[in-house]
């Protein structure tokens, strides 16, 4: 069972984010970079599947030099090896370009036995579009199973088999099954990611990281980056500071005042 997990480095989720004045892209230097939280769940799920079914877990990361930190963290958690797509031409890439690069990188694995499953976090905490998993599946021509809160694998001998997920919806969940290989995105309900152990941290040093440029992947630089983006940020404004809330004083009628407030906001 060969599993590839796509991971992204993002600005610290809890910090205030800023955009660059020159090109309206995210100012990555302004905040501490961290591994996208949802991707930690994806890595954890891949490691659990490996623990049950054997095989190998590879992380695939597209990002600047500093994203090495995120690659190393994945390896410390127990991932076997990594592919880091690193190219200056990638700056400003949108979701379409990202999915193009990730699919090209996955294509290069065909020589080394391919993959049975691709796992992604269902969204990144910076862009929050949740579209890359679907775009990637489409580009690869594989089934997409998104927003999984539970994943189970029925591996067939000699490759293939099926994957079944519980797909989180607003009302409950749907059970979806597909043949392998397939693309799965996970939500944070799925598991509790492990912390790297010191042994894992030491072992990560010796694990292979394959750095690839756009040329290595056969991707034209015109199709990625700011120039190749199908969407552009025209302008931006910082969010206005939060307004003071309404204070309800209970003078025996607190409950009905709360109900009135909720009704006026159409919550009830």
């Amino acid at each position: 069972m060969n599993i590839v997990v796509c991971v992204k480095q993002v600005p610290d989720t809890w910090s205030e984010k800023r955009l660059n004045d020159e090109d309206n892209t995210l100012d990555r230097a302004a905040t501490d970079p961290v591994m996208n939280e949802m991707d930690e769940y994806a890595v954890e799920e891949a490691l659990r599947i490996k623990e049950m079914h054997g095989g190998e877990v590879t992380v695939l990361c597209m990002g600047p030099d500093a994203a090495t930190e995120t690659v190393r963290k994945s390896l410390s958690m127990g991932v076997d090896k990594a592919i880091h797509v690193l190219d200056e031409g990638l700056h400003g890439s949108d979701a379409l370009a990202t999915s193009l690069v990730l699919s090209a990188a996955l294509g290069t694995l065909a020589d080394s036995g391919g993959f049975d499953l691709v796992v992604l976090g269902s969204e990144s905490s910076d862009a929050r579009m949740s579209v890359v998993p679907a775009m990637l599946a489409e580009r690869l021509g594989l089934p997409q199973l998104t927003f999984a809160k539970e994943v189970s694998i029925d591996a067939a001998d000699g490759g293939g088999g099926t994957v079944t997920i519980k797909r989180l919806t607003d009302d409950g969940y749907q059970v979806i099954e597909a043949s392998l290989p397939a693309v799965v995105s996970v939500v944070e309900k799925i598991n509790e990611p492990r912390y790297p152990s010191f042994k894992g941290i030491m072992a990560a040093k010796k694990k292979p990281v394959d750095t690839k440029s756009l040329a290595d992947l056969g991707v034209e630089s015109a199709d990625v980056g700011l120039g190749g983006a199908w969407s552009a940020v025209e302008s931006f404004e910082t969010a206005p500071p939060r307004q003071a809330g309404t204070i309800v004083t209970d003078e025996g009628d607190g409950a009905s005042k709360l109900a009135e407030f909720l009704a006026s906001k159409k919550f009830i």
Binding site: R72, K73, S76, Y195, P196, F198, I201, M202, K205
Partner: peptide, 14 residues
């Protein structure tokens, strides 16, 4: 060292 810094960060996060 890089490894001890990774350990420090991991425990800090925990």
């Amino acid at each position: 060292s890089d490894e001890l810094e990774s350990l420090r960060k991991t425990v800090e996060e925990f």
